Amino acid sequence: MDAPFTGSVFLGMSVDGFIARPDGDLAWLTGGADAGGAPDDGEGGDFGFAEFVAGIDALVMGRGTYEVIAPLDEWPYQGKPVHVVSTTLGPGADPRIAVHGSFDDAVAALAAAGYRRVYVDGGRLVHTFLTAGLVGELTLSRVPVLIGEGHTPFGPLPADVLLEHARTRTFRGGMVQTTYRVR
């Protein structure tokens, strides 16, 4: 599928490749009670997330990811259009988002809006964008923990997705963040 925009992914995951536990729990990633406090990069930073968001035109996420983000005290995407793919949220469910009933509807809306770089978030949606050939860049931040099972954005693909290494950064505490370009 051709689109006039590039999908960019920025995910935190366990070393064994999971983005959430089977029940959706993220405490191991977000610094919950069992994880020893809020994560930072050792210098009071956010592992480059704010810089990444500053470089995108819009976001698209699945309903599950939206439900994690929606109740946050501070909306992390100030000034960026947020699109949510959901068959259960109705239009006007939240004035901060645009709701699309399908992947195809979301892609059409993102293309029609003229966005060039779109942040794709949420495991199933990332997989759908990868399958459709709409991801141009992946930034994967591996948190030094093995959780054994959970949700992954990767799974069966119609063909191999060849990647080119762009950069790797390491952070105090052991997180390793690698960015790949899709070839």
Results as ranks from 00 to 15, higher is better:
residue 113 A to K: 11
residue 148 G to H: 06
residue 70 A to W: 13
residue 7 G to Y: 01
residue 27 A to N: 09
residue 176 V to N: 01
residue 54 A to H: 04
residue 14 S to Y: 11
residue 93 A to D: 09
residue 70 A to H: 09
residue 10 F to D: 00
residue 86 S to Y: 01
residue 56 I to G: 01
residue 61 M to R: 10
residue 42 G to H: 09
residue 126 V to I: 15
residue 169 R to D: 14
residue 6 T to H: 09
residue 19 I to Y: 02
residue 102 S to A: 07
residue 20 A to P: 00
residue 116 R to T: 11
residue 13 M to L: 13
residue 50 A to E: 13
residue 160 D to A: 15
residue 2 D to R: 12
residue 29 L to P: 00
residue 81 P to T: 12
residue 150 G to L: 01
residue 35 A to E: 12
residue 102 S to T: 14
residue 51 E to Q: 14
residue 169 R to P: 08
residue 116 R to D: 13
residue 64 G to T: 14
residue 156 P to E: 12
residue 95 P to E: 15
residue 145 V to T: 14
residue 143 V to I: 15
residue 76 P to A: 02
residue 156 P to G: 12
residue 68 V to H: 09
residue 47 F to R: 03
residue 122 G to H: 04
residue 139 T to C: 11
residue 100 H to I: 08
residue 164 E to M: 08
residue 61 M to D: 00
residue 28 W to Q: 04
residue 179 T to P: 10
residue 159 A to K: 08
residue 176 V to C: 06
residue 124 R to Y: 06
residue 28 W to F: 05
residue 95 P to Q: 10
residue 166 A to H: 13
residue 6 T to P: 08
residue 86 S to I: 11
residue 44 G to A: 06
residue 167 R to H: 14
residue 77 Y to I: 08
residue 86 S to F: 02
residue 75 W to P: 03
residue 104 D to C: 07
residue 128 T to G: 08
residue 63 R to A: 05
residue 55 G to Y: 11
residue 136 G to P: 04
residue 7 G to T: 03
residue 46 D to I: 06
residue 161 V to W: 06
residue 158 P to D: 14
residue 106 A to L: 03
residue 181 R to D: 00
residue 40 D to Y: 00
residue 62 G to H: 02
residue 110 L to R: 10
residue 16 D to G: 04
residue 75 W to F: 08
residue 113 A to I: 13
residue 84 V to H: 01
residue 19 I to L: 05
residue 98 A to P: 06
residue 56 I to Q: 05
residue 43 E to S: 14
residue 12 G to C: 11
residue 10 F to K: 02
residue 124 R to P: 10
residue 122 G to T: 11
residue 29 L to G: 00
residue 70 A to P: 07
residue 39 P to S: 04
residue 9 V to I: 06
residue 75 W to D: 06
residue 71 P to V: 07
residue 98 A to N: 09
residue 40 D to S: 03
residue 26 L to I: 08
residue 127 H to T: 08
residue 82 V to G: 01
residue 153 P to L: 10
residue 36 G to I: 11
residue 66 Y to E: 11
residue 121 D to S: 12
residue 135 V to K: 12
residue 180 Y to T: 01
residue 43 E to G: 12
residue 81 P to C: 03
residue 19 I to P: 00
residue 43 E to A: 15
residue 164 E to Y: 09
residue 104 D to N: 10
residue 73 D to M: 10
residue 117 R to M: 07
residue 77 Y to G: 07
residue 1 M to H: 14
residue 138 L to M: 08
residue 144 P to L: 01
residue 27 A to P: 08
residue 122 G to W: 02
residue 100 H to R: 01
residue 161 V to D: 00
residue 165 H to W: 13
residue 119 Y to P: 04
residue 79 G to S: 07
residue 58 A to F: 00
residue 91 P to R: 11
residue 53 V to G: 01
residue 20 A to H: 05
residue 167 R to D: 14
residue 99 V to A: 03
residue 40 D to G: 01
residue 114 G to C: 12
residue 76 P to L: 03
residue 37 G to K: 12
residue 132 A to T: 07
residue 164 E to D: 14
residue 142 R to E: 15
residue 171 F to R: 00
residue 87 T to S: 10
residue 98 A to K: 13
residue 85 V to Y: 10
